Amino acid sequence: MTELTEPDNVPAQPAPDWPEARGQDITDPQVAQAVARLLDVPRLPTADHEAVYNGLHDDLLAALNGDPADGGPSGAAPAGGEA
């Protein structure tokens, strides 16, 4: 029967190179805060990544459905609407 675990003397796998976090150009504070959560992902166990991504999705959806941070251009008609 073949062992499913590796022996103790096998060297550890190198950690993946994570891309640098970008987002300095994000102007919406709600989106910036949500995206900042990605900075924790490299330090988390893989099993916890799904929860972070699900939370990020929910936060970005809330930001998308919420009011714009800057209120948008004043006097602008909504897309598809009339002024």
Rank of each mutant, 00 (worst) to 15 (best):
D59M: 06
D40F: 00
P29C: 11
A15F: 05
R43L: 01
V35R: 12
L44K: 05
G55M: 06
T27H: 05
G23C: 13
M1E: 09
D28I: 08
P16T: 05
A32R: 15
G71K: 14
Q33R: 14
P7G: 06
L38C: 09
W18Q: 06
E3H: 08
A83W: 04
E6V: 09
E82D: 10
A76Y: 02
L44F: 01
L64W: 02
A15W: 03
G72H: 09
H57K: 13
G80I: 04
P68H: 03
A79T: 04
N54W: 02
I26A: 07
G75E: 08
Y53M: 14
V41Q: 01
G55C: 04
D25V: 08
E82W: 02
L4G: 13
T2L: 14
D48V: 00
P73A: 12
N65R: 14
Q33S: 14
Q33Y: 08
A21W: 14
P14R: 12
L44G: 00
A63Q: 09
V52S: 00
H49R: 10
V41P: 03
H49V: 02
D17R: 15
S74N: 05
A36S: 14
D48L: 01
G55V: 03
H57V: 00
E3D: 12
W18F: 15
E50R: 15
P7H: 04
T46N: 06
A32W: 07
T27M: 11
G75I: 06
H49K: 02
D17T: 15
G81P: 00
L60H: 06
E82Q: 07
A83H: 01
T27V: 09
L44M: 07
Q13Y: 12
M1T: 13
N65K: 14
E20Y: 05
A47V: 07
A79H: 02
M1D: 12
A76Q: 13
A77H: 01
G23E: 13
P16L: 06
T27Q: 14
L56H: 11
V35W: 07
D25N: 11
H57D: 11
D58I: 01
H49T: 03
L56N: 10
E50D: 09
Q30D: 13
A51C: 01
P73R: 15
T46Y: 10
Q33T: 14
V31I: 15
A77I: 02
A76G: 00
A83M: 04
Q24P: 03
